[in-house]
Design a protein around this nucleic acid. Sequence first.
DNA 1: GATATATTCAACCACATGGTTGAACAACAA
DNA 2: TTGTTGTTCAACCATGTGGTTGAATATATC
Lengths: 113, 113
Amino acid sequence: MVEQQSERLDAVFHALADPTRRAMLRSLAAGERSIGELAAPFRMSFAGASKHVKALERAGLVRRTVKGRTHVCRLDPAPLASADEWLGFYERFWSERLDLLERELTQPEISGE
Amino acid sequence: MVEQQSERLDAVFHALADPTRRAMLRSLAAGERSIGELAAPFRMSFAGASKHVKALERAGLVRRTVKGRTHVCRLDPAPLASADEWLGFYERFWSERLDLLERELTQPEISGE
DNA sequence: GATATATTCAACCACATGGTTGAACAACAA
DNA sequence: TTGTTGTTCAACCATGTGGTTGAATATATC
């Protein structure tokens, strides 16, 4: 199951590694969007945009419900939470750094002797 | 400059989208590592592992200093902070959801009239 | 039924990616 | 000097990716 988590993280980070897909997520953050609405802002064929949506679905970031002939997408933020959790492990590195720096500056006598 | 930020995010998320590279970051979280030390845990040629390190460098996640004939790598957490910041925009979606659910459950009279 | 709309699918292309191998190079050790 | 170690580089291969186009499908409209 750890491997499954890893594969999911692969898909999520891969999905986020493309500016078109990140923009689509931004759009979805404002509400539900059809595939056409998601595709519209980009100078790209419909089918091309559709592939990006599929990448987002593969990562579990987008869920789709078919409503008549239009496919309505909505954001599923859960995988983003997982990604954030993964990053959380490293949070101490970008906050601790300041602590260390401050400690060095306020206790110069340690290195002196 | 916004585009530069986007390209940097591309590189960071792309770097994180591979389990080998994530494992390398974990290793680097424990301290400095040579390329050989980073490569050792994986059933993969030296040159292959070296390519992964280069991907991490491209993302700014790893900085390298040459010490004699060994190349010493250390983690640079700053780009991870940027990625975390990007994810932060969506944090409300995975926390607000619970709030909304709770509100609906505790105030059923709203939909009643 | 005929037509327009929203979308997928399959085929294709150029290019990037992750991997290999073997040669090259730089530095320490004998 | 000779050899060994740590590493890069170049070439290559298979596969994946992002993009296109044109045809197919399903649904709404006339």
